[in-house]
């Protein structure tokens, strides 16, 4: 009974058609900003970041206070009177042993250890990885396996043998010796990283380059290197962080005048004589952590890309 009427109305007026079936939900579904899920999600994120950022906050604040203010407690409160004296002292005046020129000595030692170790280890490991994935030779798998086993041997086992080795080579206690140690110990993980990355490069690209007459080094420099920036960034970050934060090798294989920054930091913070200068300690620690932090911030995006590219494929 109602049917003929609706039909007639529909046929008569175009408005009626528009208002009928088109008046319901249309287009993208609206989302509520303040849904329960969102509140939970952002609440959790906020809480977790607070948890992680709180120590940093305490450190920065403490490093900007004078000692009297620190003694009053209130470690979370911002400084009433901001002073940069602790930073200056940490960098240039703090005493470790007989030297009283602050962390600056350790910083430059660390730089002089880091740069050559970084360049040499990445250069050698990338060629290793390239050869192992593209120029398979008889026993290359065995060679690779032996190299990887190296990654699983605890450093403590090798500490003393390496001391003897360096002594025999006449570079014990020198920066050269420390560079050599870092280069060798970084090799397994870096080679694995590069091998897996180069294995993910299509084999036909390599074949095409061979037909085009490029040799071992030609393919490496002209084909492989230009397309592997992300993995080089990953390797760089791993090495910078690892070498800069290293304490064990530094304390074992260096002498006081060649101590890296971490060892010197320890000596400043853990010195038993005199008053504990918390503000100087905090400043010194922040200074030491600054280099890896800067590297992370500068290369975050490439780092993620490289990790995704290199780590997945075996």
């Amino acid at each position: 009974m109602a049917n003929p009427a609706t039909l007639g109305a529909a046929a008569l007026s175009a408005d009626a058609i528009g208002a009928g079936p088109m008046s319901g939900p249309r287009g993208a579904r609206p989302r509520r900003r303040l849904s329960r899920g969102n509140v939970f999600l952002y609440g959790t994120l906020l809480l977790v970041s607070l948890y992680y950022l709180l120590p940093l906050w305490v450190m920065v604040m403490t490093s900007l206070k004078g000692m009297p203010e620190i003694r009053m407690g209130n470690i979370f409160a911002p400084p009433v009177e901001v002073t940069f004296q602790p930073w200056v002292k940490a960098w240039a005046e703090a005493c470790t042993g007989i030297n009283c020129d602050g962390l600056s000595r350790g910083f430059w030692n660390s730089v002089r250890i880091l740069i050559p170790s970084l360049v040499i280890s990445i250069a050698v490991a990338s060629v290793n990885g390239y050869a192992l994935s593209n120029w398979r030779f008889r026993g290359s798998e065995t060679f690779f396996a032996i190299l990887i086993v190296g990654a699983f041997i605890p450093y403590q086992v090798m500490l003393y043998p390496v001391v003897i080795l360096l002594r025999e080579l006449g570079i014990y206690g020198s920066i050269t010796g420390l560079v050599l140690v870092h280069t060798i110990f970084g090799m397994p993980i870096l080679t694995l990283l590069f091998r897996n990355y180069f294995a993910s490069v299509p084999e036909e690209l390599f074949k095409a380059a061979r037909v085009d007459g490029a040799g071992f080094w030609g393919i490496y420099f002209k084909i492989m290197l230009p397309m592997s920036l992300p993995i080089f960034v990953v390797a760089m970050i791993i090495q910078v962080t690892g070498i800069w934060n290293d304490f064990l090798f530094g304390v074992v294989y260096a002498r006081p005048e060649t101590y890296p920054m971490t060892v010197q930091l320890n000596n400043i913070v853990n010195s038993v004589q005199g008053v504990k200068e918390y503000n100087v300690n905090m400043a010194a620690t922040l200074l030491t952590g600054l280099v890896p932090l800067v590297i992370y911030f500068a290369s975050g995006k490439l780092f993620v890309r490289g990790i995704a590219a290199g780590a997945v494929k075996g």
């Binding site: 299509p202 095409a208 380059a209």
Partner: peptide, 14 residues
């Protein structure tokens, strides 16, 4: 004295 063409083209991307 050969030239070769591959399925995946194998062009040098950079």
């Amino acid at each position: 004295g050969i030239g070769m063409v591959f399925q995946s083209y194998a062009l040098y991307p950079q």
